[in-house]
């Protein structure tokens, strides 16, 4: 009996309107990355890496701050991302294997692990990387996150020892939103991205790189090159350097 998205959209819109009553938030969040203790970069040299289907979301931010999904931008960004990842591979010692289109139980298994990784990555970002909701126990805690060793089933299916997950979400401000923020401030548009490497035999998160304010316009080839270089900066054993 429900038209999907009413509740979420309303909360977003209402929140955006209320945000005008508050002072502009300082931009505090910076790029962060973590490496699992004891992980040696040399151990993945030359190994096959399974690339999970990158999550790409691009849209516009309305005057009041509502997210408006843009199909053209998202499709273009997805194409550019795929091309750029092939490009980036030449600077890594690893072979990136794209996740094939799966059906039935295998598709469900992969979907479960994609969802699990997203949850764990979010926990890492919220509770360990960034101030705000960081847990005191995690602030200087070890980077010892894991998806559990049952993920080994994916290693069997894919014949890869490692898995790479990539997420980007971009809200480009509309003209109205820019004017509004000039007048009264407000939350800057979202340009969040993260990339994570998981050991498919143990489930351990070996490396995660996250930035809530990424650079590079993902709708253009040049911008995407910058974005991917930022996502994969400090990727273990790679020669990719971050473009500012």
């Amino acid at each position: 009996m429900t038209i999907l998205r009413l509740r979420a959209a309303f909360v977003a819109a209402f929140g955006a309107v209320l945000a005008f009553g508050m002072a502009a938030q300082p931009a505090f969040a910076q790029e962060k990355s973590g490496v699992r203790p004891g992980f040696e970069e040399t151990s993945i040299a030359g190994e096959k890496i399974l690339l999970f289907r990158p999550s790409v979301k691009v849209g516009e931010k309305s005057m009041a701050g509502m997210f408006e999904p843009r199909a053209e931008w998202t499709e273009e960004a997805r194409k550019l991302m795929d091309a750029e990842l092939v490009n980036a591979q030449s600077r890594m010692s690893n072979e990136l294997v794209q996740m094939p289109e799966l059906y039935g139980e295998q598709a469900e298994l992969v979907a479960e692990y994609e969802a699990l990784f997203n949850s764990v990555a979010n926990s890492i970002m919220v509770h360990q990387f960034f101030v705000g909701n960081r847990l005191p126990t995690r602030k200087r805690g070890a980077f010892d996150w894991t998806l559990g060793d049952e993920i080994a089933r994916l290693a069997e299916v894919s014949d890869a020892k490692y898995g790479l997950f990539i997420y980007t979400e971009d809200h480009y401000a509309s003209a109205g939103n820019k004017i509004m923020r000039m007048l009264v401030g407000g939350v800057p548009p979202v340009h969040i991205g993260y990339a994570g490497l998981v050991d498919l035999r143990t489930g351990n998160v070996l490396w995660l790189n996250a930035d809530p304010q990424m650079g590079g316009d993902v709708r253009e080839a040049e911008g995407m090159q910058k974005r991917v270089s930022q996502l994969l900066a400090d990727f273990p054993g790679s020669t990719i350097t971050k473009e500012k």
Binding site: A13, F20, S62, A64
Partner: peptide
């Protein structure tokens, strides 16, 4: 329709709020 209504509604609401 709902999406457009929400956007125009929230746009107006933000202007009035300001």
């Amino acid at each position: 329709q709902l999406f457009k209504r929400l956007r125009s509604g929230s746009d107006i609401a933000s202007i009035v709020s300001v």
